[in-house]
Each structure stands twice: as C-alpha cells, then as structure tokens.
Simulated assay, not measured.
Amino acid sequence: METLFGLDYQTWWFLVVGGVFSGYAILDGFDFGAGAWHLFLRKEKSRRIAMNAVGPVWDGNEVWLVIGGGALFAGFPVAYASLLSAMYTPFMLFLFFIIFRAVSIEFRGKEEMKWWRKLWDVVYSFSSIMLGFLLGVVLGNVLMGISIDANHNYTGDALLSFLNPYSILMGLTSLSLFMSHGAIYLLLKTEGKLYERLAVLQKYAMGAFITVFALTSVYTLMYAPHLSDKLMTMPASLILPVLVVLSIANIPRLTHKKKYLQAFLFSSLCISFMLLLCALEVYPNLLISSISPENNIDIYNAASSLKSLKIMMIIVAIGTPLVLGYTFFVYKTFSGKVKIDETSY
C-alpha cells in the first residue's frame, strides 16, 4: 500500500474531508449562530448591524460546504451516495433553509414596509436555527449508525428515522454551540447597548451548550459504547476529550474578561476538537451500519482509485493556500466594528 509521509492516501483524504468540514463548521457556524439571535434583537438598527456583521462573509463561508461535499464525492463516492440516500430528508431540509436564509438576507432591505422586514427577519432567524440544528442531527446519525445493508444501500425509513434521541441531543448541542460562537463574533463587531445585550445572550447560550453537551456525553457513554470503546483502546487519544473540556472552560473565562477575540479562537478550537474526536471515534469507518459491523463503509471500500486520490492530493496542495489566503484577506478587509451606511443591508 502506497503512503505519503507514513499515511496511506485514503487516510490523507479522510483528513482532508474532515478538515474542510471543520472549517465549514467554524465559519458558517458563527453566522448561523448570529442569525439565530436575530429575533432576540428588538431594535431595527440592532438587527441591521447584526446582519451586516455577517453580510460580507456569509456567502464565502458557504463555499466551504461546496468544497466539503465535492471532496467527499471525489474521494469516497460510495459513502457520499449512501449518506445522501440515508439522510435525504435532513439534507433536503438543509438545502431548503440555506436557500431561504440567503434570500432573506438579500430581500430584507429591499422594501421599507415593517411587515416586509418582519417577515424576512423571521425567515432569516428560523432558517439559521434549523441549519445549526440539522448539522448536529446528521452528525448524530453518522456517529450512532445508519441502517446500511451488505450492498451499502440504506434500508431504513427515509422520512423520520433521522430523528432519534441521540441525533436530537447532537442537534441541540451544535445549535447552542453555534449560538455562543455567533454571539462572540457579534461582540467583536458591535458596540454600545447592542454589545451589552449580546454579552448577556452569549452567557445564556454558553450555559445551554454546557448543559446539553454534558447530557450528550453521558448518553454517548451509556448508549453508544462503540464510540467510547475506541478511545479506550488508544490511551493517547484520551488527550482529545481533555482538550475539548479545556477549550470549553476557556470560553466563559475569556468572555468574562472581555477578551472576545481569544474567546472566539477557543470557540473555534472547541468545534475543531469535537469534530476531531468524532472522526477518531469512527475511523477508519465513514458510515457505521446499525445492522451489522460487516456492512460498515470505511475509507478503503468507499475510496476512489489510488490514482484519483494522488491527483486530487496535488490539487489540494495547490488550492489550500489559495483558499486560506482568500479567507484571511476577506476577514482582514472587513475587520472592525460595523457601521451602518447607505450600502448596508
């Protein structure tokens, strides 16, 4: 088996896909969180400031989702097909809400009528909440296991089987984390009374996240032993749960000191460490079959040809610095507090 720096190409592509989705969760996560707070901001000016805080970057953040989906399809087409078949309903809902969220951002400021703006405020906030929730629901199903037969076909109910206690807990965990993450981002972009209100809202979101995260962790230990057992076989990997807890503990400490940039970095690290922990728990599997372990889809039976993976790794080596450079440039250009003018949403 050919390797690159000691790892086979299938593992490298597993890391690429995981890295892209982690970047997406960090970047689109904060603007989902910011949107989820929209209806909690009562004044028109406050809502406009919050929307303009994400206005220059939200569409660029969604590019990471396109890259992630493309990377999964290119590297592991079998897993891509099975996942989209199994999670057809949540993915269609996700597509529905992501379209209406984009429409609401662009349409809200086109008319002055109160009913018009209130309508799009509701659509924007509800769509953001559902998007954050659905991402956790999909992750919960992937971790718990999906009804996949020996031919890698989904055999479960396509309508509501994705809603189970664990996926709902994961959905609430991701939503509360994104709302805390988004509030921290807005604190970096706002001032005055809006800033003070967001500081209070962020504390509520962080409290909710810690509570739901604790419940989800207990549920995982009790009802998903295949995840925790994997860590026990590799004692060195236990450092990851420790890093997750430390990153979570640092967020309220830093927000209390009003060090919001550092808090945002630790919030981003928290998302990264949690997703890395999930990846480690399932590796080398991509999709766990709830029917039989023999039906699991892993990085080897789902991968494209070795030649394809090699060519795509070259593309990744060229494209990654460009994407990171562009992302840095955009955030540097639009850094600082938001000011409303005639070009604002």
Rank of each mutant, 00 (worst) to 15 (best):
Y300N: 06
I26D: 00
N164T: 04
N153H: 15
K189A: 01
L83N: 09
V218G: 15
E112A: 13
N164E: 15
F133C: 04
A236R: 05
D121L: 06
F264K: 03
K189M: 02
T216I: 01
F100C: 12
S127W: 07
L169A: 06
G140H: 00
L7E: 10
E2Q: 00
F76T: 09
I239Y: 01
L177A: 11
F91L: 13
L93M: 10
L160A: 14
L15S: 05
G109V: 04
V316Q: 12
E44V: 13
T255D: 06
K332M: 11
M113Y: 14
S217R: 11
M312Y: 04
S228C: 11
M222D: 15
P235D: 10
H181G: 07
R101E: 08
L221S: 14
L261A: 10
C278T: 04
L72N: 03
L139I: 10
L41G: 04
I315L: 14
L143D: 12
L246A: 15
I314R: 08
P235R: 08
G171A: 07
K307W: 08
W120L: 12
T155C: 15
L93P: 05
I291R: 07
F94N: 01
A86V: 04
G18I: 03
I340M: 02
D229L: 11
K43M: 11
Y166L: 06
R253C: 05
V137T: 07
G68V: 07
K230L: 05
I315H: 03
L163M: 05
R48E: 13
L139W: 13
S82L: 10
S180Q: 15
V63F: 12
L41W: 08
E111S: 06
M92L: 14
T220I: 00
Y204R: 14
A150D: 11
M130I: 08
H152M: 01
I210H: 09
S104T: 13
M232C: 13
F5S: 03
D121K: 12
V78L: 05
F5D: 06
N52Q: 11
L4S: 14
P284G: 06
P90K: 03
L169Q: 07
G132I: 11
P321F: 12
V242R: 02
A224H: 05
P284V: 03
L275T: 05
L175M: 09
H181F: 09
S272Y: 04
L4H: 02
G207F: 05
G132Q: 07
V316W: 07
L322G: 10
V212A: 09
A36V: 05
L198I: 09
A34D: 10
Y345P: 13
F178G: 09
Y185T: 12
F178R: 12
Y283M: 01
S267E: 05
I239C: 08
S272M: 09
A263T: 05
D28C: 01
S217N: 06
S176Q: 02
V212Q: 04
F328A: 08
L177G: 10
F162H: 07
Y166R: 02
A36F: 01
L131I: 14
F209L: 00
P235C: 08
I271A: 15
G23F: 08
F328L: 12
V338A: 00
G19N: 05
I297Q: 10
T320Y: 07
L275R: 03
L131Y: 09
Y331E: 04
L7A: 01
M232Y: 15
V316H: 02
Q202A: 01
S180Y: 10
M234L: 11
L7M: 00
W64M: 08
M312G: 08
L175H: 01
A25L: 02
K307F: 12
S128M: 14
G192H: 06
